[in-house]
């Protein structure tokens, strides 16, 4: 008799790089150690790209690929996001119908605070992103929320990043609320899990595949991934938010992506930004 076995992932599953030796190291709520994760990630790239200074990872692929760096530096001489930042400033200061402005919703009137996002909000039991609070500010003041991916929200976020340039990311995972660490762990797990028809994790492309040509593209190192968002992408021809990029990259594994600002993408942002602690805000950025 023929035994028909259900078979599947096969080859794809073997493509996991096996780094771990000890079981249970950092993959449970009891063992996860964000600071150890951050150091391990830095060490991974230090070995992989010994010539790249840590501070330079905020420049994404250009920190490791000299060929495209020259082009990019030229682009940055006349930054394509300049107009968007000006427009963002105007929108930021334009009073709502009730006379208030965005400044009323944020610490320090919203100036120079990008480095503190995303953060764990204990009252709400969730990760809050800057874009989320921009929309909450609108709704609190009787305005309609903006669409998440591009347009006004990206410009306002770009202006707020601009006022925070060179401030150092300082994401905290408060110890008095275990749910914060759980959110971090969810984000980390998402980043390293293989999925989609191509059976790829974020890490497959951005760690093992960093600066390795995949079709026509060179994936950047994951360190500093978030520092320059929102970003003006030549491919988009406009400014887009981090979660727009998450959606696109999630799709690159041939998965159906999640919604922007969904719990999982916010947890992912929490994890990724924690990994970039110590690096500076350099948003908005320009990328190919």
């Amino acid at each position: 008799m023929k035994i028909i076995k259900t078979l599947s992932l096969g080859v794809g599953l073997m493509a996991v790089a096996q780094f771990t030796t000890a079981a249970g190291a950092g993959n449970t709520i009891e063992t996860v150690d964000p600071e150890a994760d951050r150091m391990a990630l830095q060490n991974f790239y230090k070995k992989r790209f010994p010539d790249t200074e840590l501070d330079d990872y905020v420049n994404g692929i250009y920190s490791v690929d000299a060929a495209s760096r020259a082009q990019w530096e030229e682009l940055e001489e006349f930054p394509p996001y300049e107009f968007a930042v000006e427009e963002g400033e105007r929108l930021f200061n334009e009073p709502f119908a009730n006379g208030k402005t965005y400044a009323s919703c944020f610490a320090n009137d919203g100036v120079g605070i990008r480095q503190n996002y995303p953060y764990w909000n204990k009252q709400e039991g969730t990760v809050k992103t800057l874009e989320m609070e921009i929309n909450e500010c609108r709704e609190k003041n009787g305005e309609k929320p903006l669409k998440w991916g591009k347009g006004e929200i990206a410009r306002i976020s770009a202006y707020m990043a601009w006022t925070s340039r060179d401030n150092v990311f300082d994401i905290k995972i408060p110890e008095d609320d275990p749910r914060a660490l759980a959110a971090y762990l969810e984000g980390k797990k998402f980043f390293y899990s293989k999925r989609g028809q191509l059976n790829l994790s974020c890490a497959n492309c951005h760690l093992q595949g960093s600066n390795v040509r995949i079709r026509a593209d060179l994936p950047s190192p994951a360190l500093g991934h978030v520092s320059h968002f929102p970003v003006f992408r030549s491919k988009w021809g406009e400014l887009g938010t981090l979660h727009r990029r998450y959606k696109g990259c999630h799709k690159d594994s041939r998965s159906k992506p999640q919604e922007m600002q969904s719990d999982i993408y916010r947890n992912l942002e929490y994890f990724q930004t924690y990994m970039s602690n110590g690096l500076v805000v350099n948003g908005p950025g320009a990328r190919k």
């Binding site: 996991v16 790089a17 096996q18 780094f19 771990t20 030796t21 000890a22 190291a25 950092g26 993959n27 994760d37 391990a40 990630l41 060490n43 991974f44 980390k188 797990k189 390293y192 899990s193 293989k194 994790s201 890490a203 497959n204 760690l207 093992q208």
Partner: peptide, 9 residues
């Protein structure tokens, strides 16, 4: 079960 296998240590 296995996601942690690709986390650098």
């Amino acid at each position: 079960k296995n996601w942690q296998l690709s986390v650098p240590q």
